[in-house]
Design a protein around this nucleic acid. Structure first.
Length: 468
RNA sequence: UGGUCAGUAGCUCAGUGGUAGAGCCCUCGGCUGUUAACCGAGUUGUCGUAGGUUCGACCCCUACCUGACCAGCCA
């Protein structure tokens, strides 16, 4: 293309038009409307903006009869033309084409993505193409904005982004089944005298797995760097077939030194509100789309979280509220049970109609590392519950006393030896510290209203499914 | 891993124990400002797979495959 016209993105043309200027646009045809009496309209999208750019193609272009009819959805094009005020009502600006070049053709007989409605389920078979749709490109941009909002929130507050390992020898947390990482010959692995696979002969000289959480390592750095956070992939080999589980997902885990549960709860509330405020500000078109096409109440739900103080109460108080409610639950409420999603959602949606932070859970239903309260029965745990989804954040103040932690490890039937380094953190200059974990895809689900977690990560991994 | 539901045209879906349907897509015709374009015509089928019941099965039964949802586990 010999023309020296300024290359611009669709976003730039639509957001800051320069009427009268000649512009060079490159993108993909989303749809084409033609009047065979002599005018064709192209909707061109280049990924920079939710909206398409309307390109008006006049019939006097030399390739009007030969190439323009072949501009099927999915074709890539270059357009040179003038930015003008649109005569149509649906857009302020459009491009009056002087030259349209078909760069890459797209055969509609073979192309899986069409103008017609497609189910999410169908599109899951085309994860490499589904970002060409409105829904999936909107999700991709929201995901990006949320990622940067996460970094922005912590960086502004002086938190250090910590890269915790993907491959780990820890299986201490018991957060679920882990993926084994091994270079041993699976047909003939070395075996010890007992006939078991001998992982001391493996690559690392030990059995290792993909991480299920960076929390324990984050604690190590918090106990020197002050405040840190992780944001990276984690892995669970659970055979879960639900709309809320992935085998590979991203997790955010801040950890603060010299901090107690109250600091943790405040951080969680500020964090969630910052994320929602940012996405509502930076993705208004995408959010409007989710409201219209995905979840009609999404904006109200997010506003409710953004504009209400989070309600704090203890697990014990929550159990009392639930028992007094007179509501019949599928699972009866008794002190000591782990609250079901029906209970959590009842609290946040019906009782308080606001986000709820529950604290001080029975120690038997929580992890070994959570700080035991003076009552000896509960731990300094917190769950943040939001309307529409239930638990979105789980956190705790960590046990900082070596003897109590050792006792808890035994109590939970875990091995003490692999946690020697974790105990060092309590031996050498121990401090109160606290943190929480947020499943990033569940956050994206919450923000977009998307029902299935497989649709909010670009390339989902679930049991039996790994398309590309 | 258990329970429930589903599988019909390339896509989204109707459908009935007795000739296989619509809309979209695509093709052709019409229309000089469309925008979910519109109007008219046309092309498109192993009704998930394998058995069984029946004069006759897309429909009823059984098994299997695949998917979704719910529960458990969790984030």
């Amino acid at each position: 293309m010999s023309d020296s016209a300024l290359k611009r993105k669709v976003r730039e043309v639509l957001v800051s038009p320069k009427l009268g200027d000649t512009v060079h646009i490159q993108g993909w045809v989303r749809t084409k409307r033609e009047s065979k009496a002599g005018l064709t309209f192209l909707e061109v999208n280049d990924g920079s903006y939710f909206q398409n750019l309307q390109v008006v193609v006049p019939a006097d272009l030399p390739n009007y009869a030969t190439e323009i009819p072949k501009l099927y959805p999915g074709s890539s094009v270059a357009v040179i033309g003038k930015e003008v005020q649109s005569q149509g009502g649906k857009q302020a600006v459009e491009v009056q084409a002087r030259q349209v070049i078909l760069i890459g053709a797209c055969d509609p007989a073979l192309y899986p993505i069409g103008k017609q409605k497609m189910s999410y389920e169908y599109l899951r078979d085309f994860t490499h193409l589904r970002s060409r749709t409105n829904t999936f490109s909107a999700i991709a941009r929201v995901r990006n904005v949320l990622s940067m909002a996460i970094h922005g929130f912590f960086q502004e507050r002086g938190f250090l982004w910590l890269h915790t390992p993907i491959i780990t020898a820890n299986d201490a947390e018991g957060a679920g089944q882990m993926f084994r990482v091994s270079t041993l010959d699976m047909d003939k692995p070395p075996r010890n005298e007992g006939g078991e696979v001998d992982f001391s002969k493996d690559f690392f000289g030990a059995g290792v797995n993909l991480t299920v959480s960076g929390q324990l390592e984050a604690e190590a750095y918090a106990c020197s760097m002050g405040n840190v956070y992780t944001f990276g992939p984690t892995f669970r080999a659970e055979n879960s077939h639900t709309s809320r589980h992935l085998a590979e997902f991203w997790m955010v885990e801040p950890e603060m030194a010299f901090a107690e549960l109250e600091d943790d709860a405040r951080l969680a509330e500020d964090f969630l509100k910052h994320l929602l405020r940012t996405v509502l500000e930076k993705c208004p078109l995408e959010m409007e789309f989710f409201k219209q096409r995905v979840e009609p109440t999404i904006l109200e739900t997010l506003s409710a979280v953004l504009n209400n103080p989070f309600k704090r109460l203890t697990y014990t108080e929550a159990v009392e509220v639930l028992k007094r409610s007179g509501e019949t639950f599928k699972y009866a409420v008794e002190w000591g049970i782990d609250l079901q999603s029906e209970h959590e959602r009842y609290l946040t949606e019906k009782v308080f109609k606001a986000p709820v932070i529950l604290t001080d859970y029975p120690k038997a239903i929580k992890a070994f590392y959570m700080k035991v309260n003076p009552d000896g029965k509960t731990v300094r745990a917190m769950d943040v519950l939001v309307p529409g989804i239930g638990e979105i954040i789980g956190g705790a103040q960590r046990e900082d006393k070596e003897e109590i932690l050792a006792a808890r490890i035994k109590e939970m039937g875990m091995q003490e030896a692999p946690l020697w380094w974790y105990q060092d953190l309590r031996r050498f200059g121990s401090v109160p510290h606290a943190g929480f974990g947020l499943g990033f895809e569940r956050l994206v689900q919450f923000v977009t209203g998307m029902g299935n977690i497989r649709d909010v990560i670009p390339f989902p991994r679930t049991p039996g499914h790994i398309h590309i």
